Simulated assay, not measured.
Amino acid sequence: MDNVNELDLLQDVAVLTEQIMNIESVSGNEREIADQVHQALLKLEHLEVHRDQDAIVARTNFGRERRVVLAGHLDTVPLPRTEGAKGTVPAQVIDGVLYGRGATDMKGGVAVQLALAAELKDAKYDVTYVFYDHEEVEAAKSGLGRLAKNSPELLEADFAILLEPTNGTVEGGCNGTSRFVIRTHGKAAHSGRAWMGHNAIHDAAPILQRLADYQPQTITVQGLDYREGMNAVRISGGIAGNVIPDYCEVEVNYRFAPDKTLAQAEALVFDLFEGFEIERTDGAEGAKPGLDQEIAADLIRILGQEPKPKYGWTDVSRFSALGVSAVNFGPGDALLAHSDDEHVAQEDIRTCLKSLRSWLS
């Protein structure tokens, strides 16, 4: 490996963020960044390092009674196609703001993990640092899911933090997510003789009406209010402009609060669309906030901010499934993730590092 490109984990964490942002790592192309993270961690004698394809786990063994996980994904969504977009590669620094793909989601958080891994040679807890591939694509490819399957013992801990962007505030747990396809069937005919057929798209009108009439709930779980949502996200049907459609599919996404299991969410949707042909095509459990532990309360006290719920799904769900309470906490605004203007203030990355250093020291 060219020494010029090696990661310097002890430099200013904002500059480290820029360095890893300049390594393009769209999902499926994580090898280079994984290699560099792996090589940098291998140099740290206080860490035990493991690798599974493009996922790396580094662990301290201080002999502490409790262990925490700091986790983050190495991949990004594809680069923007808009000409002149700032949220691309390589990164740009403008007036103390770092622009580029992965600025918020989530190379700022990954840089904080790496800085702590190099810096903390003694800590209040033993720490496991997890860097993984394929988060921004279908769940079956997830590097964290692969680690949980192949080496679950490496992820054992009392508490976990996923360094997803939260604007520097703890966001507890996450909503679950599920997708369904609801189908109607008709009879094809020439549109000039429509009475000879039966229009499947017209039959989908009651599906859309039930969605329009549905009132999503806000549900309190361990003191945090989780807003649910149920929406049609795609509709398809028909084969040509002069043919009465003989089929229609409405895809529905249900985001459900972590008071429900995936099975309970499925039952609710099946009940709402009773009488229609329906299939669940995807789903992931939510995660309860995990803020009822002393170890989490310590972090909240240090930050001095009230925790918030995480409305979107994140990999805290995977840790919850392993029996590890987990929260989201990292630099940057999640609303900027995946945007053509993705950016993060350099000082926000430094502040995140200081907060976690204080918590762990």
Results as ranks from 00 to 15, higher is better:
residue 15 V to D: 15
residue 280 R to T: 05
residue 80 P to W: 15
residue 318 R to W: 00
residue 136 E to D: 13
residue 359 W to Q: 07
residue 8 D to M: 06
residue 189 A to Q: 08
residue 39 Q to F: 08
residue 328 N to Q: 11
residue 330 G to T: 00
residue 58 A to G: 09
residue 298 D to C: 03
residue 264 Q to D: 11
residue 72 G to M: 12
residue 93 V to G: 01
residue 322 L to R: 12
residue 285 E to M: 04
residue 196 M to S: 11
residue 98 L to F: 09
residue 75 D to N: 07
residue 263 A to T: 09
residue 239 I to H: 01
residue 57 V to C: 08
residue 293 Q to F: 15
residue 263 A to G: 02
residue 295 I to L: 14
residue 215 Q to Y: 02
residue 191 S to P: 12
residue 241 G to T: 03
residue 225 D to W: 00
residue 93 V to N: 03
residue 56 I to L: 02
residue 281 T to R: 04
residue 2 D to W: 00
residue 213 D to Y: 01
residue 331 P to F: 10
residue 119 E to C: 05
residue 201 I to T: 08
residue 71 A to T: 09
residue 113 Q to N: 14
residue 239 I to T: 14
residue 106 M to L: 06
residue 107 K to V: 05
residue 268 L to F: 00
residue 44 L to A: 04
residue 289 P to N: 06
residue 290 G to S: 09
residue 334 A to S: 14
residue 103 A to I: 02
residue 53 Q to N: 12
residue 43 K to A: 14
residue 114 L to A: 02
residue 333 D to P: 07
residue 70 L to H: 10
residue 136 E to S: 07
residue 328 N to L: 12
residue 347 E to K: 09
residue 287 A to W: 04
residue 18 E to T: 05
residue 212 A to V: 02
residue 33 I to L: 07
residue 64 R to A: 13
residue 320 S to Y: 14
residue 73 H to N: 07
residue 302 I to T: 04
residue 138 E to S: 10
residue 332 G to Q: 02
residue 311 Y to E: 09
residue 98 L to M: 12
residue 13 V to M: 08
residue 89 V to R: 13
residue 223 G to F: 00
residue 155 L to Q: 09
residue 66 R to G: 08
residue 329 F to T: 01
residue 115 A to E: 02
residue 89 V to W: 13
residue 164 E to H: 03
residue 98 L to S: 10
residue 51 R to N: 08
residue 175 N to R: 07
residue 261 T to F: 00
residue 233 V to T: 15
residue 148 A to F: 01
residue 261 T to I: 04
residue 48 E to Q: 14
residue 147 L to V: 01
residue 255 R to S: 12
residue 350 R to D: 06
residue 340 D to Q: 11
residue 142 S to Q: 00
residue 9 L to C: 05
residue 125 Y to F: 15
residue 326 A to C: 09
residue 85 A to Y: 13
residue 350 R to G: 11
residue 49 V to K: 04
residue 198 H to G: 06
residue 112 V to G: 08
residue 305 Q to D: 05
residue 153 E to H: 13
residue 244 I to L: 06
residue 57 V to E: 05
residue 137 V to P: 00
residue 35 D to K: 06
residue 280 R to K: 15
